[in-house]
Simulated assay, not measured.
Amino acid sequence: MTPRDASDDSRWSDLDRPPLNAPALRRALVRDGGHGGLWCDVDVVQRTGSTNSDLVARAVNGTAEEGAVLVAEEQTSGRGRLDRQWTAPPRSGLFFSVLLKPKGVPVSRWGWLPLLTGVAVATGLSRAAGVDTALKWPNDLLVTVGGEERKAGGILAERAGDDAIVVGVGINVTLREDELPVPAAGSLALAGAVTTDRDPLLRAVLRALESWYGRWERAGGDPAASGLQETYAAGCATLGRAVRAELPGDRSIEGEAVAVDGDGRLVIATEEGVQEPVGAGDIVHLRPA
């Protein structure tokens, strides 16, 4: 596709991809008078480099508070894990970041937030789009297209000062086969979504995120007491599979992914009989579940 100008004059150039309705999103999601729900602001911009970078900057300079949501119709420098680039045509997906300041939760448990967000995204999309989704550890959203597993979304969490964390989400919604960045990518449309209207999809995901974040925060970040650990494991496509973990320092291990431990790490049982927890790295699924 040829790049489109993001000015207001061209916002309706692709009628299959209408713009988000920012006022309606704010009415549906933003807490009334500072009371009630988590979300305090929903800001929709036409184009930016990275919603994560922008929201981290706002948090650090004090212009954003907990519950701020920043959504972009187009990201020109979207980032995934390991500094991978994330690109998609304008208005073809949901690209947003949220600012969280977990209260009463030890920083040692903040590593659960990307996994919590994955559970929320999968829950919201299942309800609103009718798409069966699965989670690849630690932060990829998988859908099934033509009987094969494909990545349709990803999550990236970044610290924003001492007391805040920004979690970014990218979801391919209407990408067609000829628009996919790589053959292993997918989209909700290709997976047979009952709707690709991004407004109800975003509302569903943010409501699910608010619900799960509240449960986790009230439990002091305890993944077992909040039900997060069990729910994540139930929806994790990585468990029960033969995997290869490509680790920092050019090291890799192979074995069966057998559990997600209390720290959110993937536990791999190797042929040598060792159970090794992996907290960072790239996971390759070697065979179907």
Rank of each mutant, 00 (worst) to 15 (best):
T231G: 00
T87C: 07
D14T: 12
K151F: 07
E276R: 15
A134F: 04
E217K: 07
L70W: 01
V173H: 02
A189C: 05
W110Y: 13
S126I: 00
G221A: 08
S252M: 05
R11C: 08
Q275L: 10
E217R: 13
P114N: 09
E73G: 11
G153P: 01
E74Q: 14
A64T: 06
L20R: 09
R4G: 10
A280H: 13
E149F: 05
R109T: 12
A280R: 12
R198M: 09
T195K: 04
R207N: 10
G262D: 15
G240I: 06
I171Y: 01
W110K: 11
C236G: 06
P288T: 02
G262R: 13
T144H: 08
L201S: 09
R207P: 01
R4Q: 15
A204P: 05
A257S: 04
E74T: 04
G214L: 14
V45R: 13
A57R: 07
A72R: 01
W110T: 15
P19Y: 03
Q275Y: 04
L99S: 06
A128Q: 08
A189I: 01
W39G: 02
E65H: 10
A259R: 12
G249N: 06
A193R: 09
L142H: 08
L239A: 12
L209D: 00
I171H: 01
V42Y: 03
D54F: 01
E271N: 09
L239S: 10
Q229L: 14
A24T: 09
N172Q: 07
A225Q: 13
S187T: 06
K136F: 03
A184N: 07
E66V: 13
P18A: 08
R265S: 10
A134Y: 03
A72E: 02
Y232M: 02
V42P: 03
I283E: 08
R47N: 10
V44C: 12
W137Q: 12
T144K: 06
G146C: 10
L202K: 05
R218K: 13
V143C: 09
G62N: 07
T117Y: 01
G147V: 11
V260H: 00
T174M: 05
V284D: 10
R11A: 12
K103A: 15
D282Y: 11
G186A: 04
V119Y: 01
P181T: 03
P19L: 11
D83E: 15
D8V: 15
E74K: 04
G221S: 07
A233L: 07
T117D: 01
V105W: 12
G36A: 08
D5K: 04
V278G: 10
T133L: 15
G153Q: 00
A129D: 03
A224G: 11
S108T: 15
G221K: 04
V69I: 13
A164S: 15
E256D: 09
D5C: 14
T117N: 02
G279R: 06
E256I: 10
A184V: 08
V169L: 02
A224I: 14
R4A: 15
L94Y: 01
E177S: 14
D32H: 13
S10H: 14
P19F: 04
A280D: 15
P277S: 07
L141Q: 01
L100A: 13
M1R: 09
L99F: 06
I253T: 04
G124I: 02
G104L: 14
N21C: 12
A219Y: 04
A189T: 03
N139G: 11
S252A: 15
V173C: 02
I171R: 00
